[in-house]
Design a protein around this nucleic acid. Structure first.
Lengths: 199, 199
DNA sequence: CATTTCAGTCAACATCCGTAGACTGAAATG
DNA sequence: CATTTCAGTCTACGGATGTTGACTGAAATG
């Protein structure tokens, strides 16, 4: 019944509290978006005080900027076929990873101007790279539509939770989407009928 | 200098005011979403008073429900090829029509639970019909991914305004997406190489 | 013309939010 | 031990929002 032999130091205590706040913020922003998530709710969920949240993170906007993040897309390049495969791998990441930080951003992208811009910039950058690899007049459009397909799939799975998409295996989704991505990228049918083609 | 010969009757006046309010609400909800659109802003944009908006439409939620609407999808059926073509026609509608009522709904779907449910139900219904026409074990997944592609395309064009997608001709988008939709629907390559196939 | 109806206006209320600042007590420091 | 630092708590302010209700004046009604 003695007191804890290793009581956390003050610095450690603070780190834990900050972490609890960040976790709660990520979760609530992802679940309800920026506007409907209140500092008070974050504080309650983190079992602390609104004042502390402000003192540690400055403002609601700064807290949001801290936890809402798009995991950076890896650069894509090569032949259209290679680019398509890289995009499918990238999509697989987005469908499997935890992503609550990303979901916070995506959830708010249609109503929070900053979040919308951030998503737009990220998609546009990937679009630019993809377009550069597609030999066609309408390369930008094609790349943009691949971005739209990606975005729609992530939204459908994680935010709208569409039947069949919500619970599907990531590999199955990629399988179904492979010929579609290849088609939009302007290449012929998928390299192989089924299974991820080896090297 | 005489007074207007045909001064609008009181009933007519009211109809005009209601129409101004509805127009303003549609526009503002579409531009900023539910939470960031205030009754006061709607009233100002409609050149009236917040109290009047309340008296005519009851509450902010009712006003939103009145102007935010998904134009009903026409039923789709037939062979996978036919269904794919019907979906592309439906998509073309969604990309060209004015749509500010639809945009009000879509803009809010990620942050306003009711709007999210309404979109989900609409997509799910179309998904059900499409899945019924696809002879495959994973028909529901495939139909869901076509829904995701559609949703992503509309979002990319009207809400995120992606480069190349924002300004593209509707027919060009449909052209690029045709083989993709056919591929996801599980049919072979598009029926024709280019141009809308005649009957 | 007398009366009623009602579109439109105005002011206020209750609530919630982000945020600021004073305060407390225990841990760190010398 | 005396002093300082600082994590954590509490209270309150200023502003915005949805919503309500009283009021006004002109159009409709008989």
């Amino acid at each position: 019944m003695a007191a804890d032999p290793t009581r956390p130091s003050r610095a450690e205590q603070r780190r834990q509290t900050e972490a609890r706040i960040l976790d709660a913020a990520r979760r609530l922003f992802a679940a309800s978006g920026f506007d409907r998530t209140t500092i008070r709710a974050v504080a309650t969920a983190a079992d602390t005080d609104p004042g502390l949240v402000m003192r540690y993170f400055g403002s609601k906007d700064e807290l949001f900027a801290r936890v809402a993040e798009l995991s950076p897309d890896r650069p894509v390049a090569g032949s259209p076929e290679e680019v398509a495969e890289l995009l499918l791998t990238s999509l697989a990441d987005k469908l499997s990873t935890d992503m609550s930080g990303t979901l916070a951003m995506l959830r708010s992208m249609l109503t929070h101007p900053d979040a919308g811009e951030e998503v737009r910039v990220a998609v546009t950058e990937q679009q630019r790279q993809v377009a550069a690899a597609i030999p066609a007049e309408d390369a930008v459009l094609r790349a943009g539509l691949i971005g739209a397909l990606t975005l729609g799939t992530v939204i459908g799975r994680h935010l709208l939770q569409l039947d069949g998409v919500r619970d599907a295996e990531v590999t199955d989704i990629v399988e179904v989407l492979r010929p579609a991505v290849h088609a939009i990228a302007g290449v012929g049918p998928a390299p192989e009928a089924a299974g991820t083609p080896a090297s």
